[in-house]
Design a protein around this nucleic acid. Structure first.
Length: 410
RNA sequence: CGGGGUGUAGCCUAGCGGCUAAGGCACUCGCUUUGGGAGCGAGAGAUCGCAGGUUCGAAUCCUGUCACCCCGACCA
């Protein structure tokens, strides 16, 4: 992509009100634009990051045996009433009426819809296990949106739902899903810790939050450095000693990037989602649900990986892999851009009306993992300069070797 | 929803009863620059969130309203 054509205007100053690092950098780098309180547009760079994250999640969900589908945003009142969540769900639903005054809640989570889909199709234990997921916009009528993308009212979420014939099978899957979650976050470049948590209005008997420890997180987590015990202060209370090994606990801030729930039969009983077992007996389906907030994950990545000049994207979720800066603009960079284009995702700063300093500053802010610079200085040596974002080391590489060098780095 | 705060050009801010609303960034044109957000000159861009009110006079004071931010509770 040529930067001169990219729909982007980076900013020197963050807008008033941006407090968290991720909000400041994502806004200054023009990844996102605020449309209203807690409601954001994703601009081309930000959308590329979302797509990267989604694809990693998609691969991991497919590995788990998940099948992707897509459910509606407009969820009719009667479905919510079957589980009594029309009134009780928290945060409350955004509600809308159609022209005949029929009411809908904008989907904030999809247990009702998915359970309806499944009860219409599952008759026997032989129709399961069933693992279904979607990546879709969610709407939550929060009291207050905070910290840019950290808590918003409309966001993209991956939600997976599991349907099993027995508690054991369901619990086995829950544990597999937990591992898949940790792997997903790792692939996104994040060290995330699973923490036992409260189930809130989703319900169920067991749940884990997936916490990224950062300075600006909303969640307060107690961590034992000896045995690895971790718990949310919300549930465990403000205790000082580890319940497992009696060591002293450290309190850390974190961001919840995912949550898994073992639901049991809460929804299947309420909605009569039943199957016939081997003995010919009717039983409620055993369920679980599993969520990841894409935008929050993106913000969390920035919170945990940045410096004073901007974002340092983990390479798997970076919008591009290579940022080629042309300080000379005599056509040489164009050739390299075309050579590289076949191999790698590359953002080519071909702007001829910007100073070198501005290009460097933009490159740091945007945070692409590998920076290449072509200038008179490097061309005199028939070379290109290569530098990794987040490292100070600068190397000169002969032009002929550049493609191979980049392949090695990635 | 309770408490606190802010609305002045695309963005950040100054001005807080008195002359034609000021500056920086960004933008347009010209010349000069060209490895860390360049310099000089010229130019364009604002019904001071909106509606009332007080006053000889309101961006400035008062009332209402809308929007946004922060703390609390809730969450992916």
């Amino acid at each position: 992509m040529k930067q001169s054509k990219l729909f982007i205007k980076t900013k020197k100053q963050a807008p008033k009100g941006a407090e968290t690092i991720s909000h400041k950098y994502l806004t200054r780098g023009d990844f996102i634009d605020q449309t209203a309180a807690g409601i954001y547009s994703f601009l081309p760079l930000g959308w590329l990051v979302c797509k990267k994250i989604e694809n990693i999640i998609r691969e991991e969900m497919n590995n788990l045996g998940g099948q992707e589908l897509f459910m509606p945003t407009l969820v009719p009142q009667n479905l919510w009433q079957e589980t009594k969540r029309w009134e009780t769900i928290n945060p409350p639903l955004f509600r809308v009426k159609d022209r005949h005054k029929k009411e809908f809640g904008l989907g904030s989570t999809h247990e009702e819809v998915i359970t309806d889909l499944v009860r219409k199709r599952v008759d026997s234990y032989q129709d399961m296990p069933l693992y279904l997921y979607q990546i879709q916009n969610k709407f939550r009528n929060e009291m207050r949106a905070t910290g840019g993308l950290l808590r918003v009212r409309e966001f993209i979420m991956k939600d997976l739902y599991s349907f099993n014939a027995s508690e054991k099978e369901s619990m086995d899957f829950y544990n597999k899903a937990k591992e898949a979650y940790l792997k997903t976050f790792k692939r996104c470049g994040l060290e995330v810790t699973a923490v036992e948590a409260d189930s809130g209005t989703i319900g169920g008997s067991l749940s884990h939050e997936y916490i990224l420890f950062t300075e600006t997180g909303e969640d307060k987590i107690l961590v034992c450095s000896k045995c690895g015990y971790a718990a949310n202060v919300e549930k465990a209370g403000d205790i000082k000693e580890c319940p497992n090994c009696q060591s002293s606990l450290e309190k850390k801030n974190g961001i919840e990037v995912g949550h898994t729930f073992y639901l049991g039969t809460k929804y299947s009983e309420a909605m009569k989602a039943e199957f016939v077992d081997k003995n010919g007996k009717k039983k409620p389906i055993v369920m679980g649900c599993y969520g990841i907030g894409i935008g929050r994950l993106m913000a969390a990545a920035v919170e945990s990986s940045h410096d004073n000049n901007g974002i340092i994207w983990p390479k798997n979720i970076s919008p591009y892999q290579v940022h080629l800066l042309d300080l000379e603009c005599n056509g040489e960079a164009e050739k390299i851009y075309k050579d590289l284009l076949d191999n790698k995702e590359i953002l080519y700063d071909d702007r001829d009306d910007k100073s070198a300093g501005e290009k460097f500053a933009d490159a740091d802010l945007i945070g692409i993992p590998i920076r290449l610079v072509i200038s008179k200085k490097t061309l005199d040596k028939n070379s290109v300069e290569i530098k990794k974002r987040g490292s100070k080391k600068i190397e000169l590489i002969e032009i002929n070797n550049i493609v191979k060098k980049i392949q090695d780095e990635l």
